[in-house]
Amino acid sequence: MEKIIKGKAYVLGNNIDTDQIIPAEHLVYSTSIPDELKMYGHFALSGVPIDKAGLPNGNIPFIKDDKTESEFTIIIGGTNFGCGSSREHAPLALNVAGVKAIIAESYARIFYRNSVDGGFLIPIESEEKLNDKIKTGDELEIDLIKNLVKNNSNKTEFELKPLGSVFEIVESGGLFNYARKNQMI
């Protein structure tokens, strides 16, 4: 696990549900065929209404044209990020698009589990509301040891909550690696 994560921010609102992260109609693609897997990256966050895509101004597509990866690798969310369905395709789609971490005030349970257990990305909770303090395109640097996120675009800094009981699973890179490390399987 990288302890320092650098990347450009993509800012979203509250209650970003799994249909906005990856609309249900795209769940037909195989996750084990590489060319089809890329489609999940292409359609990542395609369900977000365009005026709310990339706050504060909106109208910033997460994925440009026919690309399958995004220039934005850190997502800033609000409350209840990833609510809705149980589809693991949601954190997977963000992972395929190149997202390394999400910072949000809170997460829906299944999305949080899927992110951690699947080893797709690191879901981090912020101590305060950040989607009104960080702008899409800001250059961020997350420090998972000090539990801080620095905004290098305007030299501000915010505290993050420690990963807590899931730290070991995150550090192992997912549930299966964790279980192998602990001789559970």
């Binding site: 149980s86 693991e88 299944i110 589990r113 899927n114 257990d117 080893g119 299966f176 279980a179």
Partner: peptide, 20 residues
Amino acid sequence: TGVGNTDAAFILGTGKIWEK
């Protein structure tokens, strides 16, 4: 309760799930 594919794959092989 509902889970994702990784948790389900783990159950498929072990019959177990971690839960708070």
